[in-house]
Structures are given as C-alpha cells and as structure tokens.
Simulated scan of single mutants.
Amino acid sequence: MLIQPVADLLSRNADHYLIPADIVANVQTDNNLYHAFLVLTKIKYSKIPVLDHAGHFEGLISLPLITEQMLGFDQLNVEVLMEKRVSDVMETQVKTVPNVDDVESTLHLMIDNPFVPVVDNDGLFQGIVTRREYMKSFNFLTHEIGKQYDMIEKDFSTSEKSK
C-alpha cells in the first residue's frame, strides 16, 4: 500500500496519465499482419493495442509476434503477412486497469510493461497509461514531497548496530 503523501502527490497528476484512445496507434483484429507490421514500423513502437470494430480492447500485437510468423527453416516467408490476421497471433492475456485513479495497480503492472491499457467495465478501450508519464510524476514527487509534507529523517544506523 502506498503511503498517503505519495498517493496524494501521484493522484494529483492522474489527469495527465491517460493518453486517450483516439490518439493511440492501434490495429483491428481482422487486419492482416502486413498492415500491423507497417503500422508498428512506421510509428516505431514494438507493441500496440488491438481493438475490434466497436472499440473494445482485444489484446496487443508486437513486432516479435509478427516476425516469428515469418521465420521459416531457411528463409523468411513474407507471404504469411498477407494471409494471417492480427487475431491469429495477438497476445490476449493482457492485464488492464479500469481507470487512471488506480495508481497502485498501474504501478505494479508497469514494472514489466512500458504501458498499461485502460479499459472500462464494458471492455471499451479508453487509452493507455505510459511508464514515461508516471516517471514524470515521480520526478515531481521527489522534488515536491519535502516541500509539501514534514519529513522526519530516521537514523537507521543504531538499529543496524544492535543486530
């Protein structure tokens, strides 16, 4: 559990965490892998959300998932990019958060992920929360917490000597 001063300061910037769905690069489940490959290459991200036609979050697609499909025994098979669909290879077991206010859950998920999808209770994709935006808030926190809260430094050296 986060201590209250940290939770307060992180929550203060919560409205800046969400990158809205309408500006997040994505592909749809029925797009072919060629289209997904082009989108990922053009935007220079290694992983993006996959949505259905109604805007529901379905999973994530990544360059490694696509290139793995192209690998043959002795050569690359690029024809597979036109034949297979995103839904055939996408990652579906993706943890999401329901809103940007769930700071602690989001922090835990960001340990292993550069972004976390925000998906509402109806499964609609709301956007992403990026590790970069959280790091900006941590930078703010480290500079501001002492100005906003009385901080008492504890002397741990005496407790270490008694062990």
Rank of each mutant, 00 (worst) to 15 (best):
E68D: 06
L51D: 11
I128G: 07
F140N: 14
P117W: 09
T41I: 10
N32K: 15
V39Q: 09
M1F: 12
V78D: 08
G72T: 02
L10C: 06
D101M: 15
E79V: 07
Y134N: 01
T142V: 13
Q28R: 10
V116C: 13
V24H: 02
E144H: 12
I61L: 05
V39K: 13
I43G: 01
T92N: 09
S87Q: 10
K147D: 15
M135H: 06
N26D: 11
H16E: 14
T29K: 12
S87P: 00
H16P: 05
L38D: 02
T106S: 07
S11C: 00
I3F: 04
K42I: 00
F73S: 15
I66Y: 06
I23H: 10
I19M: 15
V86E: 01
M82T: 08
F73H: 15
G59Q: 12
S87W: 03
P64V: 10
Q93Y: 14
T29D: 03
E160P: 00
D150S: 01
I128F: 01
G59V: 02
L107F: 07
V129N: 12
I19K: 04
D102W: 07
T92D: 05
V24C: 03
S137C: 01
L10E: 08
E83Q: 13
K154P: 02
D88C: 04
K47R: 09
E91V: 07
V24R: 05
F140W: 12
V27K: 15
V78Y: 15
P98R: 13
H143Y: 15
K147M: 08
A36K: 07
V119N: 02
S157I: 07
L76E: 11
